[in-house]
Computed example of a mutant assay.
Amino acid sequence: MEIHLNIIGYMLMLLAFIHIIFPKYFNWKEELKHLSLMNRQMMFVHTFFIALTVFLMGLALVLESDDLINTKLGRKIIFCFAIFWSIRLFMQLFVYSPKLWKGKRFETIVHIFFTGFWVYISAVTWMIWNQ
Rank of each mutant, 00 (worst) to 15 (best):
M1N: 07
E2R: 06
I3M: 06
N6R: 05
N6C: 00
I7M: 03
I7H: 00
I8G: 10
G9W: 03
A16I: 00
H19G: 13
H19D: 05
P23I: 04
F26I: 01
W28D: 09
K29W: 02
E30W: 01
E30F: 04
E31L: 15
E31P: 11
L32K: 05
L32H: 08
K33E: 10
K33I: 07
K33G: 03
K33W: 01
S36Q: 06
Q41G: 02
M43G: 02
V45H: 03
V45A: 06
T47E: 13
F48T: 03
F49R: 00
L52N: 08
L52T: 07
T53Q: 08
V54G: 07
V54C: 09
F55T: 03
F55H: 08
G58E: 08
L59A: 11
A60D: 09
V62R: 06
D66N: 13
D66L: 05
L68E: 11
L68T: 05
I69G: 13
T71R: 01
K72Y: 07
K72A: 07
K76R: 10
I77K: 02
I77H: 06
I78G: 12
I78M: 13
F79T: 04
F81R: 01
F81D: 04
F84V: 10
F84A: 13
F84L: 15
R88I: 07
L89N: 05
F90G: 11
M91G: 05
Q92E: 14
L93R: 12
L93A: 10
F94A: 12
S97G: 08
S97T: 10
S97N: 12
P98W: 10
P98A: 11
K99Y: 06
K99H: 09
K99W: 04
L100M: 12
L100T: 09
W101L: 00
K102D: 02
G103H: 12
K104Q: 14
F106C: 00
F106P: 00
E107Y: 02
E107N: 08
V110S: 11
V110Q: 14
H111D: 05
H111Y: 15
F113C: 11
F113K: 11
F113Q: 09
F114C: 04
T115S: 15
G116C: 11
G116V: 06
W118N: 15
W118T: 13
W118L: 15
W118I: 08
Y120V: 03
Y120G: 03
I121N: 11
S122V: 09
A123H: 08
A123E: 05
T125M: 15
T125D: 14
W126L: 15
M127N: 15
M127V: 04
M127H: 13
M127C: 07
I128E: 13
I128H: 14
Q131P: 00
Q131C: 02
